[in-house]
Every structure is written in C-alpha cells, then in structure tokens.
C-alpha cells in the first residue's frame, strides 16, 4: 500500500474530497465551508454541493437531516464540538431517531464534523472533550481519530455509513503529520486497534491521549513494564471485546481520557471490564481523566486538570505495585 505524508486535518479533508468525487450525493456545508469562488471544494464540486451557511447550527444540522432523508449524504462542518450544543435536539433527538422510529423505512446518512479538546488557552467554552454526551445516544455513531491515517479512514467510513456519525477531530492533533494511505482508505467502525503490544498492563486512550499513552509506555518500558496501548477509534460503537481480551492477558487496566471523569469513555470501559472481566483483574482499574472542573484560561491551571504522561506513568506504577510481582 503506497502512502504519503500529510497532516491530521489534511487527511480529514482528503477523505471528504475523495468521497465527494466518488459520490455526487455527498454534500458539504458549514459556517467556514466554501463561500468564495476560489475555494478548492467549490471549484471541484460547485456551489450547489459546497455551501457556506449562516451561524445557524439548528438549521445547518436539521437541514442535513432533511437532505439525508431525501437521499443526500451531507457532511456538516460544525467547526467546534461546543457549537453542536446550540443544536442539541438535532444532534441527539432527530436524525439519529428516524431510522428506528420509522421501523427502518428511512435512513439518515450524515456526518457532523467538529473539533474538540482545544486546551490551548481557549478557556471554558471551546475546550471540552464532550463526547460523553453523545456516546450513549442510540442511533448516533461517534468517531475519535488519533492519527492522520485514521482521520482519513474514519471520515471516509463515516460518509459511507447510513447513519448519523459524529466525527470529532482533536484540535491539538490538527497539524500532526503522519503517513496516510493513498487513494481509498476505509477504517471500520467498532474495531479498536492495538497501537503497542504489551503483557503487563492495558492502557486505553482516545484522540490526543493516544500519543500520550504511547509516550508513557515507552517510559515504562525502560523500567521493564510493558504496556499494551489500545485505541478504540470509535466510541459508538465501542469495541469492548478487544479491551477485555487484552485485560485477560495483562490483568491490569489503566484508562486515559481527556474528558471529565464522570462523562468519559474511561468510565464506560471501567464499568464494562469490572462487570465482564472482574476475574481477570489483578488490581483495581485506574482512570486518568480530566479533573471535574471547567478548563481555566491560564496555562498552569489548564494543565493541572488534564491528563499528562507523568500522570499515566504514575497510574501504571500504582496498579503494577498493587498487584505485586509481575508474572
């Protein structure tokens, strides 16, 4: 498979571009989409399919629902995840309900693309890792890519999916570079990937915390602790089987998550593993999550509430020590 190097956000747009070229039903709309004749998407796909919108989230997302009901496959660039909250009904109580409410008679294939987790001095209202609000909503799928290749592959899969998909790209990864497959690249939903194998402890991380967990694993490896790092990639559907299988090998689980503790993927996975994998655990599950506070503007306070590599390393040492000598 031939690849090329590009940025995380470039990979997202590459997938949208390829899907728009492949299927003329794919549309792109949003407040920062097109809007000028020299926009490359406008030039390639025309102003009918690429439309700048007013600052009207309810209409943008609701119109995507309507266009999808009528056979199109719209992608809404909602810019920031928090802007979805303006239109919460349309995100969690309209398009995602229609297939079920109709007994399968209608489909709503649409993508909501939004950035999240912009913990770079954006203070309280533009920095949240708010996917916990969406991951338990029936009918809605949620993707959290952590690499440029997955950003491309998950977006392409999202556009081809026949359901509403919330595609959340992490702002702090925006300019990260990586190898991305040329041409068609599809990453399946509901299939976690093991980013690094390891026998001593299972680390599960999403988005921006994946490179953090990998860095922690490298640090721990110098001390002889081998961490297995798992990236779920989509949190709805959520691949709990891969996590459980790993915990059965390692006996230890540390969950890393940027979201606040009680609205995180970590909390959900902790419950699933406690229920289905209790007998395999040799130590309590530990969650390294965002602290239960808003994100303060000033850097020391912002950093204080976020997970970081040192917190992950410390958590892993704690579970390893708790369970005594490693096998």
């Amino acid at each position: 498979m031939s690849t090329h190097e590009t940025t995380y956000i470039g990979a997202v747009m590459e997938a949208i571009d390829q899907e728009m070229a492949r299927d003329e039903r794919v549309l792109l709309l949003g407040q920062s989409v097109g809007g000028r004749p020299d926009d490359p998407f406008v030039q390639r796909y025309g102003e009918n399919r690429v439309r700048v919108t007013p600052i009207s989230e309810t209409a943008e997302i609701g119109m995507a629902v309507g266009a999808a009901l009528a056979g199109m496959r719209p992608v809404v660039d909602a810019t920031m995840a928090e802007f979805l909250l303006v239109a919460m009904d349309q995100v969690v109580n309209e398009g995602n309900r229609f297939h079920h409410m109709s007994g399968g008679r209608v489909r709503v294939p649409m993508v909501l693309k939004a950035g999240y987790g912009f913990t770079a001095g954006w203070a309280g209202q533009h920095t949240g890792s708010i996917y916990g609000m969406f991951m338990g909503v029936p009918g809605l799928k949620v993707a959290l890519p952590s690499t440029p290749a997955d950003a491309k592959g998950l977006m392409a899969t999202a556009i081809r999916d026949d359901n509403p998909v919330l595609f959340l790209h992490h702002y702090l990864l925006t300019l990260d570079r990586g190898e991305v497959p040329d041409g068609e690249h599809l990453v399946p939903f509901g299939q976690a990937v093991i980013r690094r194998p390891g026998a001593d402890v299972t680390l599960v991380a999403t988005g921006w915390t994946v490179p953090m967990a990998l860095a922690a694993a490298a640090t721990l490896a110098a001390d002889g602790i081998e961490a297995e790092v798992i990236d779920p990639r989509t949190i709805a559907p959520l691949d709990t089987a891969t996590v459980l299988a790993s915990v059965r090998r390692t006996g230890r689980l540390v969950l890393v998550d940027q979201a606040t503790r009680h609205a995180s993927v970590a909390a959900v996975l902790a419950a699933e593993v406690a229920e289905a994998g209790f007998d395999a655990l040799r130590a309590p599950i530990v969650q390294v999550t965002g602290l239960d506070a808003g994100i303060a503007y000033s850097r020391p306070m912002e950093e204080h509430v976020l997970p970081d590599e040192a917190k992950v390393v410390a958590a892993v040492r704690r579970v390893v020590e708790h369970s005594g000598t490693r096998v």
Binding site: T58, G62, G66, M72, P74, D89
Partner: peptide
C-alpha cells in the same frame, strides 16, 4: 419523509429536503 415530535424541529428537515 417523517415527523419531529419536538415543536419546530421538523422545519429544518423540510428545508434540507428542499436543498436536496
């Protein structure tokens, strides 16, 4: 195409179907 049971929320659906 369907209904919304939430007051007013089907109006953008009609609008989006018209865009289609």
């Amino acid at each position: 195409l369907g209904t919304s049971g939430i007051v007013g929320q089907g109006i953008p659906h009609a609008t989006g179907a018209a865009w289609a």
